[in-house]
């Protein structure tokens, strides 16, 4: 039997790919497709039964009701802000790791940056709840300089999300800088460029595509998040909360599915835009 398999690579490929494709390609993709079909159905508001008739009602509600528009824009705003903060914070540490630190220190820093990536998401959000809580470190520091602490709210949400996704931004920038030969920096200096000019004209052109690659994660992860905002965001809502409430308490799956298409559509648009910049190769 083995030898007959050996002679038929197509059969072996089929045996290898069959089960995973059934799992991911049929079951998982099928589930995703079913979800988006559900978004085009409606729900009987009395019985709660989903009626399988094509309608754009859910999307109409989504685009016409003020509060959902506000939440959608707020979510995209938070995602942009988180991405921006991560890009600004990740650049210096990635630059230090790749171009200043010696190999031993570099390995240590890499592990130091990666370790929290694997610490529980929930625990990290919880840790920031402690930071922003009354009497926590953030509020003590604000009070020490005579300011009012931001407390739980959108600021805390942005900080926490930026913290959660920071390693996803550091890694691609570090990898991009690693590939930039030191001789290019030396050439730039030999040609008379000062450090700021070298950073602007040699390092940044390499870093920007890497930042775009990292932003795919920071942006996408923020768009789908609803836990962090529940933990540190006070009463603020993001798109994820609307989806969650409509699957659970409100039990309106068509509407939840319609809301869930927003992050997917935004991400697909984002990916298409990124693809044109050529940053996908640095993923």
């Amino acid at each position: 039997m083995m030898s007959s398999l050996h002679r038929h690579p197509r059969v072996r490929l089929g045996l290898l790919l069959g089960p995973p494709i059934l799992w991911l390609g049929v079951a998982y993709l099928g589930a995703l497709a079913a979800l988006f079909v559900t978004a085009l159905w409606s729900q009987n508001s009395f019985t709660g039964v989903i009626e399988r008739e094509w309608t754009l009602d859910s999307f109409r509600t989504l685009f016409t009701v003020e509060v959902y528009r506000t939440i959608a824009l707020r979510t995209i705003g938070v995602a942009l802000l988180v991405t921006l903060i991560d890009a600004v914070v990740a650049f210096p540490i990635a630059l230090y790791m790749s171009k200043v630190a010696r190999p031993g220190l570099r390995r240590f820093l890499l592990v130091a940056v990666l370790m929290p990536l694997w610490a529980s998401y929930l625990v990290k959000a919880y840790a920031w709840r402690g930071m922003f809580a009354e009497g926590g470190l953030v509020s003590s520091m604000f009070e020490a300089v005579g300011l009012k602490s931001p407390g739980f709210g959108l600021t805390a949400t942005v900080v926490t999300l930026a913290y959660l996704w920071l390693p996803y931004m550091i890694l691609p920038i570090y990898a991009g800088l690693e590939r930039l030969p030191d001789s290019l920096l030396e050439a730039s200096a030999d040609l008379g460029a000062k450090t700021p000019q070298t950073i602007r004209r040699v390092i940044l052109p390499v870093v920007v595509p890497a930042m775009v690659a990292g932003s795919i994660f920071t942006f996408s992860l923020t768009l789908g998040d609803y836990i962090a905002v529940r933990i540190v965001g006070g009463t603020n809502q993001l798109l994820g909360n609307v989806v969650y409430d409509n699957v659970g308490a409100a039990n309106n799956l068509p509407f939840a599915a319609a809301v869930a298409t927003i992050p997917v559509v935004v991400m697909l648009g984002y990916l298409a835009a990124v693809r044109r910049t050529g940053a996908m190769e640095s993923l």
Binding site: Y28, A31, L32, A34, L35, T38, S220, L221, L223, G224, D225, Y226, G240, V243, Y244, V247, L253, A256, A257, A260, P263, V264, M267
Partner: peptide, 11 residues
């Protein structure tokens, strides 16, 4: 986003 995978599988 995890929430998309989550409700797709739930459904």
């Amino acid at each position: 986003p995890g929430i998309v995978t989550g409700i797709a599988l739930n459904n």
